[in-house]
């Protein structure tokens, strides 16, 4: 378990703030101190209490602690994992709601087309990190808008509105690599 270096923390925070500026609240919580830890390229979001408990375990044997937020790719970029959804969904500034018919498509790892779009937050710019919700407000995953809200109006039904980044289907599809 390593502390994240300043550079790497910056990368992680840049990705998180792309979803919502309020993500800062994740660091400044009233219910205790939370921090980021890195192991084998994965970044974990851990509370102080769990961290002290984990220090007892031999680090070689430790599989995972806290919540895995994502991993650093080989090229040094940070990629969000679906496991971070629970913590990030409440802070999302820009949201996309998906029609029930398109939910399954998204959960299978496809992009969201205009036909599957139910609602979208006003004034969402292009290439903005967003959280995808079902119509009854259950978070489904992360995405990046391919078109801004204004452009969505005039897009044709098959045009991609949002690029897929992570979805809850990954809990089953890539069970072993998530942790």
């Amino acid at each position: 378990m390593k502390r994240l270096t300043e550079e790497k923390t910056k990368l992680v925070l840049e990705k998180l703030t792309n979803i919502g500026t309020n993500v800062k609240l994740l660091l400044d919580r009233p219910d205790g101190v939370y921090c980021f830890r890195e192991r084998k390229g994965r970044v974990y979001y851990v509370s102080e209490k769990i961290l002290s408990l984990a220090s007892v375990v031999n680090p070689d044997k430790l599989a995972s602690i806290g919540t895995c937020f994502g991993k650093f790719t080989k090229s040094g970029k940070f990629r969000l994992h679906i496991t971070a959804l629970y913590h990030l969904a409440p802070y999302a500034q820009h949201k996309i709601w998906v029609k029930p018919s398109a939910e399954q498509q998204f959960i299978y790892g496809h992009h969201i087309s205009k036909s599957g779009l139910s609602r979208i937050t006003e004034n969402t710019p292009q290439y903005q990190g967003v959280v995808i919700f079902s119509t009854n407000n259950i978070p489904l995953g992360f995405g990046v808008t391919a078109k801004s809200t204004m452009d969505c109006k005039y897009a044709d039904p098959m045009a991609t509105i949002c690029f897929h980044q992570a979805d809850v289907g990954e809990y089953i599809r890539s069970e072993d690599s998530l942790i």
């Binding site: 502390r3 923390t9 925070l13 400044d28 290439y127």
Partner: peptide, 24 residues
Amino acid sequence: LQEEKKRNTNLADNVLKSNTKILR
């Protein structure tokens, strides 16, 4: 941990201030 938390919040502030990398 307290110090780390302080550092991280500072970093978050800096990231939010710099709009160079993120389109917002």
